[in-house]
Design a protein around this nucleic acid. Structure first.
Lengths: 189, 189
DNA sequence: ACCTGAACACCGTTCAAGT
DNA sequence: ACCTGAACACCGTTCAAGT
């Protein structure tokens, strides 16, 4: 005798994301997720292999949202590359502030969350595209990695509260953005 | 009737660091730590408030070791600043590879591990010192933050396995190092 | 075919009782 | 003064039994 489905995978992932933001990683329990979607914990295992797999799905959903925001900020290909870089950096930083726990999950996995290579590629694509225009084909990947590393590092440290020596953090962000944009565009020394 | 101490805080923290590296964050359990130092789990609470406090101590010990390595790599004040920057970056990257789980703990805390501001200051000091020589007093802090953000971001992404678009990751590291050193030394645009 | 209560292993933490 | 077993609350996960 079939029983009607009382929830969906999408609903479960959404509940996971909400719980992650409101209660951190340790707030993301199977019981809390189950409660939110109106089911008992054992039922979750019909849709998801285990908690780790659910966390991976949450990470992937977060990455794809970040990816979409960066993409939207990238602008057209006729745009000034430095302006595009600035918009993408702001978009990523704003996203990290809106979803700090989700952002942390992305590049700071407990063990190593293997997100899909395709998702990672989609997220990098707009950055690589701007890097091509800025640094040229040959150095585009290096330039994109340098920019992404700086951006991810800056935002992570900001979220972790690691900037505590005084000074204007906002100005430091602008400084880094300016200098990187210049540096990436120059011919190699 | 006093009982002789069967372990010490230092021993407990060491056990915590070892377990973190061998089994990740979830391998760092109170029971495993207790077993290693030859005591039962409840006894740990004589030296440590709870697991979270122990993790904070592990993070702080890791930060201070990283700090020492960067300091050792900084070299004398008569040295070429770009060479010093390169040595410090290598030292940090080597450290992250030797203690990946510990490194992850530093800037990717579950909630927000509040490490001691003094430790943070000690860790930044050699970088700020080189930044002064490279960028001048006025922009030293901005420059140090830009460099640290890039370094931390690059190493974190490397550890997380986020560089998967092909290309030479080693060369990307050198590229970033070169371009940053140049960019930070230039007068502001 | 999905859902559930019951059960199990495991973990963090407290506490009264030992020495 | 430190250490311990026992106990409690909580979590992830499995599974037989319900519909």
């Amino acid at each position: 005798m079939p029983t009607p489905e009382r929830t969906t995978l999408a609903e479960i992932v959404r509940a996971g994301r909400d719980l992650l933001e409101s209660g951190g990683p340790e707030g993301l329990t199977m019981q809390a997720v189950a409660l939110r979607v109106g089911v008992r914990a054992p039922s979750l295992y019909k849709r998801v292999r285990n908690r780790e797999a659910l966390v991976a799905l949450v990470a992937e959903a977060t990455l794809s949202e970040l990816s979409a925001r960066i993409d939207a900020a990238a602008g057209g290909d006729d745009d000034e590359p430095r302006a595009a870089l600035r918009r993408m950096a702001r978009a990523a930083r704003d996203f990290a502030r809106a979803r700090p726990a989700g952002f942390r999950l992305l590049f700071a996995p407990g063990a190593d969350l293997p997100f899909d290579t395709a998702s990672l590629q989609a997220a990098s694509a707009p950055i690589v595209r701007v890097a091509v225009r800025l640094a040229g084909e040959e150095y585009a990947l290096h330039a994109a990695r340098t920019f992404t590393a700086w951006l991810n590092g800056f935002v992570s440290m900001e979220l972790a509260g690691a900037f505590r020596l005084g000074g204007d953090v906002e100005a430091a962000f602008e400084f880094g953005l300016d200098r990187l944009a210049s540096a990436l565009g120059e011919p190699s020394a």
